[in-house]
Structures are given as C-alpha cells and as structure tokens.
Nucleic acid binder design. Structure first.
Lengths: 183, 183
DNA sequence: AGTTTTCAGTTGCAACTCGCAACCTAGATA
DNA sequence: TATCTAGGTTGCGAGTTGCAACTGAAAACT
C-alpha cells in the first residue's frame, strides 16, 4: 500500500500523531477491544466485529507490524493463528477505557452495561480514567499548564506562567500570545 | 477458558463504538488537540494542521454536530467564527492524553517534549493517565474483572464470579490468562 | 484414500472518502 | 470603488472500504 499520505506524522511534536498512526485507523480500536476480551483467531474477530475479511486481514497485519499484537501459529491446529496482545497493546487500555467511558457518558443510546468492569479486589466498579498529578491528585483541564522543562517546579510569577491548557504543539510558551503576535 | 461464552452480543454494548463514531475519523483528535491548545478559527486550524479545507470544514461541522465544539460567530469581526470546546469536548482530555502518552512511550522517534504539561499547583509534570478503583488505587489490567451488576461487591466464590476482564462484548474471558499468554 | 469443511487469507470490483486546487460569498479594509 | 480576508463549496483524481468470490493448506468426516 503506497503511503503517499502521512500528514499526521509531520506534526510530531507530541505523541498523539504517533498513536493515531496505528490506532486512528477505522477498526483498530474495535479489534483491540476484542483482543482485550480474549478473542484470538481471525474468524472470531470476523464474526464478532462484522468487519470485511480483507480489511480485518489488513488491520491485523498492521497491528502486528506495530507491535500491538503478536501473530503466532497455533500449536494444536496448524491452520489457526493466534493474535495476542503484547505489552504495548495492553498499555493502550487506559486510552481505550477513557474513550469508552466518554462514549458511555455522552452516547445517545442508553447503554446498560450488562457485564460491568470491576476492581477484582473488592468487586466494585472502577472509577473514571483520570489524569493524575505526581502526588496522585486527580487533575482537571483547569489544573494543567504548559511549561518549558527548564521551568519545572517553579511557581508562576506572572510573566512565565501560561494561562493555557496547551498540549504539545511545540509552540513556545503562551500559545494565545504567540498566535496573536504572529499576525 | 471461557466455556460460558454467550452468543455474541451486539457491539453497541459499550461506549467505544459511540466514541469512535466521531473521534474515530481521521483528523478528529488532531483538531481536538488544536482546540485544547487554544485555536479557535478555521484558518488557524488550517495552517496548524495542514489539513485540506474541505476536510476541515467537514470535520468541524461533524464535531459541532456531535456537541464537541461550539460554533459561534465572532463579535468583533462577523466574518470570523469561533470554534470552542464544549464541556463534552473537554471531557475527552483523558482519552487524548492517554493516547498521547502511549504514543510518546512507544513512538519510534524520540519526542523531546519542549513544552511539558504540568500540574499548575506545583509545576511538576503530570503522571500517567490511570485507571482508578473506587477508592483511588491505581489499577492495572491484571486487576480488572468482569461481573454482572447483580454480583457487585460480592467476592468471587468460584462459581458465581466471572474471572474475566471483558470490556463490553459480553464475552467472559480472563484477561490475566490473555496477558500470561502474551509473553 | 478421497471428499468435505474450516481457517486464514487474496483478488476483483463498486462505492465511498481524502486531498488538492479552484471557485464563491459576505463582511472588512484601503 | 476595488481589494482583501474568513470560511466555506465544488470538481476531479487518487486512495480506502466493503462485499463476494476464489485460493491453498490443514483438519475432519466417510
């Protein structure tokens, strides 16, 4: 497949484009979810997702290529191939859950989650996926600031501080100001 | 393994497909990120992202339609239109950050994050986006299980409990087993 | 052994989406 | 008035998706 198009990758000032390169594809997250649910074989994914064969083949290959799934021939039946999550794949769980929780919160159709995801220790439902401070406090978007590495640990003193929830474009410090100055 | 596997249920049992309906589109997350960075106007998104005009127009309309952005004519210049994040849009921050952190962790190219996202209170970098238990403990994928709502709060006793961390399909599968198999 | 079924694909083709460039319209600016 | 600017829309070629049919090898029946 000739990739004449990878504009996303050009904006490599944060990890987002890198993540989207793989997971931004149409079925990637659904396949990942199926993987978390324990599906391993081609035909399982096929009937579970209702995806076209060629697309599934292509997506699985891409996920394997990017190290999110491992492709291994089955021991007992050598026609079968097992697609299993790698550690890299498992590390997508927070992202997937966050997306899922968001979809659930705002989805039009009221989703009655028949099987509920719980903490195995006390069997109580898990809380929302959260952004944590270094000391474990839960942060909201109001609590986030953009700083240069050099300024780490220094409190804002009026001129250095950035009243913006910037998230990694590579813009210097104050994004709004930079934009304003640019015209 | 799961012999209790129930007939495959619809995929719509979890919020993921709902979330992907909007955010699964090719540029949605990049536009969202730009929104978090304070960009508001069409031409700003255009030059920041390098996206085609028609696609940007289409994506913005879809994001507005889904209530992630608000479209409001500018007061001072009536040609201009402001696209601003709604609360629903801001609620995507954990998902976006989780994705970004994953991309940063595994990205091929070493991203030197020049501006770092920090907790505004102490200006220390934020921690990883995490799955929390109801009491605030950070959970890994080993700690997650799938239960029926009726069984909430009851410890596993061998027959009722479901040793699974399925994430919405209704399948009953052990995520720990999947993880063990992954290596 | 010979036939059939299952698994994991590949190929061909129609429909759709993307990206680029050009064009359009209302509102500012000179 | 003419021109510029912001935010689109339209047309076209290329790329992507989905469906159905075909392949090839390894099990499973007969």
């Amino acid at each position: 497949m000739g990739d004449l198009r990878e504009p996303l990758k050009d904006l490599i000032e944060c990890g987002l484009p890198q993540a989207l390169e793989v997971m931004g594809e149409r079925w990637s997250f659904m396949i990942l979810r199926a993987g978390f649910n324990g599906l391993k074989h081609f035909e399982e994914f096929l009937s579970e997702l209702g995806i076209a064969r060629n697309i599934l083949s292509n997506r699985l290959a891409k996920l394997v290529e990017h190290g999110i799934l491992k492709r291994e021939p089955c021991a007992d039946d050598r026609r079968k191939i097992e697609y299993r999550l790698t550690e890299k794949g498992f590390d997508l769980l927070p992202a997937m859950l966050a997306l899922r929780q968001w979809g659930q919160k705002y989805g039009t159709e009221q989703v009655i989650e028949d099987p509920v995801l719980v903490d195995e220790r006390d069997r109580l439902p898990i809380g929302p996926v959260s952004i944590l401070a270094h000391d474990g406090r839960i942060l909201g978007h109001q609590d986030l600031w953009l700083t240069r590495p050099a300024d780490l640990g220094h409190r804002a003193d009026g001129s250095i501080a950035t009243p913006a929830a910037g998230l990694g474009t590579g813009d210097v410090v104050d994004i709004a100001a930079a934009k304003a100055a640019a015209r």
